[in-house]
Nucleic acid binder design. Structure first.
Length: 197
DNA sequence: CTACCGATTGACT
DNA sequence: GTCAATCGGTAGA
């Protein structure tokens, strides 16, 4: 039986939370329908010395959730799409982990319908694709993931060995390009922007 | 109010 | 690898 992740898990350094989120299960319940999958790719956005963080220049209407309590969602829109983050560190410390890719485990047919694609690999590969597959939008910005019956994270069920975790540069950022704050499973086909082997 | 632009994606060379 | 569609957030007049 999978156990939901508690508040204390999120109230830590964003890098630790990022690495530990790999292998956890992102779970979404909408109208009695379950969609879920294993988190395989994340990016950390640090509270300090990170100009790529939306909160780097202080609090605004958009990034307010990052300044709130840990374990809540930070959902923002960009290029007419949505991206989903988990808020980390104590209240008032604006840091978060962007969930970039998920390996679907439940509700794939519903994800197919939402994404309008037949390609299993493309259901939740990439932060905005993931949000579409899981029906995550602005209304979930600030949503408390701890104790939620709509959107939460729990421990992964016994599965195959996910393999080696590697760190690399973040995708799409125009500043702090070289910080190794993106974490993913090296050999997982559901990870975005993979290099050829 | 206008102007700029991005933590993206999908199509294309 | 390149490129542009897309639109809300932000800063500035």
């Amino acid at each position: 039986m999978a156990a939901p992740v508690s508040r204390g898990f999120f109230e830590r350094d964003a890098l630790e939370v990022a690495r530990d989120l790999l292998g956890k299960r992102l779970t979404r319940m909408t109208g009695g329908n379950l969609t879920a999958g294993r988190i395989v790719e994340v990016e950390a956005y640090r509270a300090h010395d990170d100009p790529a963080n939306h909160a780097h220049r202080g609090q605004t209407r958009r990034n307010a959730s990052m300044f709130g309590p840990p374990g809540h969602a930070y959902v923002y829109s960009i290029h007419a799409r949505f991206c989903f983050n988990v808020v980390t560190e104590p209240t008032g410390v604006p840091s978060a982990v962007l969930i970039r890719a998920v390996e679907p485990s439940d509700g794939q047919s519903l994800m197919h319908a939402r994404r309008r694609t037949d390609d299993p690999l493309n259901l939740a590969r990439g932060p905005a694709r993931l949000c579409e597959a899981f029906e995550i939008d602005r209304t979930l910005d600030g949503h408390d993931l701890v104790g939620s019956d709509q959107l939460w994270i729990d421990t992964e069920l016994p599965a195959t060995d996910p393999g080696e975790i590697v760190a690399a540069r973040r995708i799409g950022v125009s500043s702090a390009k070289d910080l190794p704050l993106r974490f993913f499973y090296a050999d997982n086909p559901y990870v975005s922007h993979r290099r050829k082997r």
